[in-house]
């Protein structure tokens, strides 16, 4: 028998985790951003549960500042799968006065998502939220358990994590608490791309090189859009870019690239010397522990 490739090993680990969640929790939900990691999560869920329906809905925390290509992709993909989509809207949280919109050129709804997410988890009574975060993205994520416990207030305490031995996962919680579950924790960015190629998964077009108007800020190239207020010297210009991560248009930078096919992108990622968040995400640059601090209060 052929030995399992490293992708097979990662895949079977993730499928096992998803089935474990479905078996142990009453109301799980799969968080879906429209990005490559969530798209891989959908394929893994198909492998774990087809021909049955997913034993959970798919939820998107919608900031209202997304790339339109991503929303289009989201609606189409979920419809193709015939699964149920729950949209938790940051705009609604703002309208209801749960959070206040930031203003100015650096305004972003990134932080506001936490409240929307926690409110939706509570409103729907979800007790397990599966996400596509990976350890290689960020040092706080690297230290988070695959089954990550959240208290009554949705908070993560990195100093009170449960032991997690081999593939023995502890999903026990009390009422009001929930767990976050990260089935692809152990994947790298390159693993995700290689899996996308192997499974021939379709991705939103922004992942491939295309021409668009961008402007330069803090050494990154941001898409010029109605959602971002530009400073006077931030003049948009056309460039051929692609995006390595999919976040808000307000905090996700593009990279100059000519990689128009999946093969080109895989080669580009294999040769890169900068991490995806280091290259493209403003939200992690705030401080040394920016992600840890956001995670503590309930961020993804």
């Amino acid at each position: 028998m052929r030995a399992l490739s490293h992708l097979d090993v990662l895949e079977s680990e993730a499928i096992h985790i998803m089935r474990e969640v479905a078996a142990e929790r009453e109301r799980p939900v799969l968080l879906f951003s429209g990005g490559k990691d969530s798209i891989v999560m959908l394929r893994l869920a198909e492998k774990a549960f087809r021909p049955a329906k997913f034993p959970f809905p798919v939820m998107h925390v919608d900031t209202g500042h997304n790339f339109p290509e991503v929303i289009e992709y989201r609606d189409r993909r979920v419809a193709e799968l015939g699964e149920r989509l729950v949209v938790a809207s940051v705009q609604e949280s703002i309208d209801k006065g749960r959070v206040a919109e930031q203003t100015g050129p650096r305004a972003s709804r990134n932080q506001l998502q936490t409240t929307t997410l926690l409110d939706a988890i509570e409103a729907h009574g979800f007790d397990a939220a599966m996400g596509g975060a990976r350890r290689d993205e960020e040092r706080a994520r690297a230290k988070e358990r695959i089954f990550s416990f959240r208290d009554d207030f949705g908070q993560w305490n990195p100093r009170a994590q449960r032991p997690e031995l081999w593939n023995l996962y502890n999903a026990r919680i009390r009422k009001g608490e929930h767990i976050r579950v990260f089935p692809i924790s152990n994947w790298t960015e390159l693993d995700v791309w290689q899996y996308v190629a192997r499974e021939k998964l379709e991705l939103p077009s922004i992942y491939f090189a295309h021409q668009r108007d961008v402007f330069r800020r803090d050494g990154m190239l941001y898409a010029a859009s109605e959602f971002v207020e530009r400073l006077p010297d931030e003049v948009p210009f056309p460039a051929t870019v692609r995006f390595r991560t999919v976040g808000d248009m307000t905090c996700t930078g593009g990279v100059l690239s000519e990689a128009r096919s999946l093969e080109d992108v895989v080669d580009e990622i294999a040769a890169t010397n900068v991490t995806e968040r280091g290259e493209t995400r403003a939200d992690d640059r705030v401080s040394e522990a920016a992600m840890e601090d956001r995670k503590r209060v309930g961020y993804f």
């Binding site: 990195p158 100093r159 924790s185």
Partner: peptide, 16 residues
């Protein structure tokens, strides 16, 4: 040692 507490104390608290 990437967590805040680990860096403050210069020790590894958690391995994942």
């Amino acid at each position: 040692d990437g967590l805040r507490a680990e860096r403050e104390q210069g020790i590894t608290i958690d391995v994942a």
